[in-house]
Design a protein around this nucleic acid. Sequence first.
RNA 1: GGUGAGGUGGAUGAGCGGCUGAAAUCAGUAGUUUGCUAAACUGCCGUACGGGUUAAACUGUACCGCGGGUUCGAAUCCCGCCCUCACCGCCA
Length: 422
Amino acid sequence: MLQVSVLKAAPERVKQQLKKKNFKQPELVDRIIGLDDARKKIQAGYDEIQSKINTASKEIGMMMGKGDKAGAEAIKMQVTAWKLELEPLRESMVETEKQLVDTLILLPNLPADEVPEGKTPEENEIVRTGGAIPVLGADAVPHWELATRYNLINFELGNKITGSGFPVYIGKGAKLQRSLIQFFLDFNTAAGYTEYLPPFMVNAESAYATGQLPDKEGQMYHATEDNLYLIPTAEVPVTNVYRDTILKESDFPVKMTAYSPCFRREAGSYGKEVRGLNRVHQFEKVEIIQIVHPEKSYEVLEEMVVHVEKLLQRLELPYRILRLCGGDMGFASAITYDFEVYSAAQQRWLEVSSVSNFESFQSNRLKCRFKGADGKTQLVHTLNGSALALPRIVACLLENNQTESGIVLPKVLQGYFGGAGI
RNA sequence: GGUGAGGUGGAUGAGCGGCUGAAAUCAGUAGUUUGCUAAACUGCCGUACGGGUUAAACUGUACCGCGGGUUCGAAUCCCGCCCUCACCGCCA
């Protein structure tokens, strides 16, 4: 959620920025400013009357103490009259405030200056690429066939137990998952991230604070009996560690990493987009999160991008880093870098990580602030990224490293896996 | 699932209709002092939205889990909800 003060400081510039994000109702900016002004005016009137009532009530107390019953009664009459004036003001204040928040919540975060213009994924900017795209033999097959051939993943079994999009990992397939998780967590903690193992379900308050509610309600599985949501990413529980807190500058940077399964309903997908591991309802992911001083967030963003890049290099996978264009970015993000790895058998790029700076958009709802050197509290900046999401990494590892005699794993995984390949 | 207790500022915890935005202690912070380590003493130390100021000072309102109610006046009384803890039952 944006701060009203940001809109007020430069409404026209905000509208321009919203346009870049492909937001269709820039007029809401003026509406919000109007509502805020109205709210202030109403509150000023309300406060004034309330102040008179408070003063009068104290007088009554003193008169009663002195035994001046008649005097007290006279003031009581006056207070009753004021209270009648107060009621409509209170109603319109609550109503205006509700409208203000309801409208403000519709505005996406503003894109950073370096975010490219554009509306579709085709307009994303390729920042750099790395690794070599392997040349596969004519008999190369996609990962879902390899998974079956070596009995690593059973998709049909998942259908039986739960439903489509819930793959069952078996034997070496399961161990590969565990190896990757272990490797990622080790790599992240070595870089100074503190490991968390968070709850995999969250309450509505937490889901709201990180922005999953109300925007993406349909995306999450909801256990209605207990009103809890299955997390779509570890970002939700882990970022909420710092909900309603005021940090000191010396607490920066807060660096957290967490493994979790992620649950996503992913309505509306179809065809080869969802084949095999390309898109599933439950998958494993290791997330990195930082909470930092606002002046440092872009520096930290670069650091996180390099960190994720190193992971891909260690895995020896061909990758590319995209800077998303305004129209393709997420609602809460000020800038996002997507990481894609090349799936050699499917001959397409698959997204495996997304690193974003939310600036103060998330911390505003999260109420995560810090007290600066000047003694003023202000909002922190939050950033997060996947490091990494497993399914598509597994897809590429299988496809790109397939040989006639089996699948060769990158060196970095061999120790974790307990073998050179499958 | 049953029974009981309770939710107060960063923490512990007092207050149980007006003198309480809230004692005290601890932590934090600024300073004084003693030769260091350390201790003692003194001041400061909640958040949000307003007014005010170059900036402060100062000042209005709200907030003692959340939402209602009673009252001239509520942290304090009443109702509903949420949550936590303890014991019992069940269970990994």
